[in-house]
Design a protein around this nucleic acid. Structure first.
Lengths: 193, 193
DNA sequence: GCAAAAAGTTAATGTAGATTAAGAGGAATT
DNA sequence: AATTCCTCTTAATCTACATTAACTTTTTGC
C-alpha cells in the first residue's frame, strides 16, 4: 500500500485508530516524478509538505553565480519542504527536485492544518518531528562552523551511509559545503591507496 | 507579573482559558541569573527549556582550540535550549549563559510533556513554534553557505536591531561566524568615514 | 550501441577570512 | 584612584578552500 510507510512512520510516535489512519490517508495525495523533475521551484509558494515513499529528493538554493547548494536530501521515509514558504506563504527560496525516479505523498497546508486540528495525536507527532528536525539543524549549524571539510564529510558518511553509495560525489560536496573539485582532491590526497 | 510575558507569547497563537493559563504557569519556575552565570554547561543534560523574561542569554559551542561559537541569542520573549540534549537526554554540546543579568522561566522536560498532553492548545502552540524555528534554521543554513561575511552581518543588523546596540562586537562576530579581528577590519574598511 | 552529457580528476593560481601579535581605550573590581 | 581585565583596532603573515581550465571516465538518452 502506498500509504503504509507514512502510517508506519507516524506509528513510531503515536498509535492511531483505524478511523484516524483513514482520515490522514484521505488528505495525502500520491505523485510519481522522474529524475530531475521539480516538486518546488524557487519563487513559487511551497504549498505542500512532501513525504518520500521511494527514491530520493533534494532541496537546494542557488547563489548569485548560479551554483546550487544542497540543504537536504530526502530518501525513503523522509519529509521535505521549504518550511518558511510553507508557513508564511512567501515565495520559496528553495527548489526541490528528484535525484532519481521518486514516489511521494503530499499534503496541502490547509489539509495539514485540519488534520492537526482534528487529530491531536497527529499534532503531537508533528510537534515531536519538528523538534527533532530543529535539533538536527542546531547541530548542523555548529558542525559547519566548527568542523573542517574532511570532518563534515566523515559526519555525512556516518549519518547517511546509504546515500554515500547512491549519490553522485558532487551532490555530497554541495551538501557539505565545498566544491566538487575540492572534495575530489581531498579524498584522493588524504586516503592511502 | 512574572508569567505575563509567557502568556502573552502563547496568546499570539492560541487563546487559553484561565484554568489552562493557571496550569501552564504552575509548571514554570522563575530564576534570576547574573552576567556570565551558566544555565547549561556542555556535558550536562539539558533538562530544561528556558524562556527569557528580561535580559539576554546565549547558547554556544566550543571548538578544539577553545574558541566559542555562538549559536543563538535569546533576548526578552525568546526560548532557548539545547534541543537534542533536551529531547534525547544525551549530554549537551551547547552551553547557555547570561550576557547580562537575566530573568528566566523554565520547565522541566517531564512537565513540558505533561502540559502538551493535557492542553492541546499548548501542543499546537509548540508545534507551530518548532516549525517556525525550523524555518529560521533552514534559511540560516542557506545564508551561511551562500552569503559573504558582510552580508551575514547586514542580515544580523536587520534581524536583531536591538542586539546590535547592546552586544559586544565580538559576540556578533562569533554569531555570524568570523573572528572579532576580521569583523573589526571589515567594518572599518568598508564603511565610509 | 553510439553520441552526448554528466561526473570525476588534476593542477595552477587566487582570495576570504584565520592567526598571531601588539598596542590603546573603556569598564569593572578593589 | 589604581589595577586589572575586557574590548576593539591595526597590520603582517598564513591557509583552507575557491576558481579556472583542460582532460578522462562514466552514465544517460535515443
Amino acid at each position: 500500500m502506498q500509504h503504509q510507510l507514512l502510517l508506519d512512520g507516524i506509528a513510531k510516535y503515536v498509535s492511531l485508530s483505524a478511523d484516524e489512519q483513514q482520515e490522514i490517508i484521505s488528505r495525502f495525495h500520491y505523485k510519481k516524478v522522474k529524475k530531475k523533475q521539480f516538486l518546488l521551484e524557487t519563487g513559487d509558494v511551497s504549498n505542500r509538505s512532501l513525504f518520500v515513499i521511494s527514491g530520493c529528493l533534494r532541496s537546494y538554493a542557488v547563489d548569485k553565480n548560479g551554483t546550487e547548494h544542497v540543504l537536504q536530501f530526502a530518501p525513503t521515509g523522509w519529509w521535505i519542504t521549504d518550511m518558511r514558504s510553507y508557513l508564511t506563504g512567501e515565495p520559496a527560496r528553495l527548489s526541490i527536485d528528484a535525484i532519481e525516479e521518486t514516489e511521494v505523498l503530499y499534503v496541502s497546508k490547509a489539509d495539514f492544518e485540519e488534520l492537526n486540528a482534528h487529530i491531536s495525536k497527529f499534532e503531537h507527532f508533528n510537534r515531536v518531528l519538528a523538534q527533532k528536525a530543529l535539533a538536527t539543524y542546531q547541530h548542523r549549524q555548529i558542525d559547519n562552523t566548527i568542523l573542517a571539510a574532511m570532518e563534515r564529510y566523515a559526519n555525512f558518511c556516518e549519518l547517511y551511509p546509504s546515500l554515500i553509495r547512491s549519490l553522485p560525489q558532487k551532490q555530497v560536496a554541495s551538501y557539505i559545503g565545498v566544491t566538487p573539485e575540492f572534495l575530489s582532491k581531498m579524498l584522493n590526497t588524504t586516503l592511502v591507496k
